[in-house]
């Protein structure tokens, strides 16, 4: 049972640190994720807008265990139009401490008003499993460049271990180079995701 819980929370962690997986060319990104059960810091560098490389340090507060992952994300396809952008990414991670690894795809489409994204992963761990999520978002107002921007979102996710679908609200704020995302579910409590680009 402990192994299932550990993997389940690693899954939650990974799925929440994938917003904006690649920065602009030469851009650095630092992310912090925390809730009452886990904490992570993920840094990535984007040599090009098409891919990023990074390292992620995880700490599972329940089992007091840490893990380090090397991560690589590649922008397979992007379609820009005047009012929208669509992205399709390949993503992967390998552990530095064992033979565990993750690979999958992530896609999104957004306008200034609407957002829809999906994520699918295969996780090779002590027990292999898959997970997926869909996220829908709506901007209640359209801010100008430099303003505080707000998104109201709904996220639903499921993995092959728990076989339970969880749906919960997420609110996202960003201003300048800082992004804050808060999600809440009765079972998993608060998700706090902070991102800084430089």
């Amino acid at each position: 049972m402990g192994i299932y819980i550990k993997i389940f929370f690693i899954f939650l962690l990974v799925s929440n640190t994938e917003a904006r997986p690649i920065s602009y060319s030469g851009g650095h990104t630092l992310m912090h994720f925390n809730d009452n059960m886990k904490e992570s810091i993920y840094y990535h560098y984007s040599p090009s807008f098409k891919y990023s490389i990074g390292v992620e340090e995880l700490n599972n507060k329940i089992f007091d265990r840490s893990e380090t992952n090397l991560r690589f994300t590649y922008l397979v396809n992007r379609k820009n139009t005047k009012n929208s952008q669509r992205n399709f990414y390949f993503q992967s991670a390998v552990s530095t401490k064992n033979s565990n690894f993750i690979y999958g795809v992530h896609g999104d489409w957004e306008t200034r008003r609407y957002f829809i994204g999906f994520d699918y992963k295969e996780i090779k761990n002590i027990i292999d499993y898959t997970d997926k999520h869909i996220q829908l978002g709506f901007a209640p107002y359209l801010g100008a460049y430099g303003d505080l921007h707000t998104w109201l979102m709904l996220k639903t996710k499921k993995n092959s271990l728990s076989k339970k679908q969880i749906t919960y609200p997420v609110v996202k704020f960003f201003k300048g180079n800082v992004l804050l995302e808060l999600g809440y579910d009765k079972k998993t409590d608060w998700d706090i995701h902070l991102m800084y680009r430089f």
């Binding site: 904006r20 602009y24 807008f49 929208s84 952008q85 200034r112 460049y145 180079n177 992004l179």
Partner: peptide
Amino acid sequence: GMVCDFCARGIEKTFVKDKAVKRIDVDL
């Protein structure tokens, strides 16, 4: 493709490195 403030930040950062650029603004 300039649909989000957070995504457009890099444009400003790239252009201000050019000494011939006096000012830059983004109209989302």
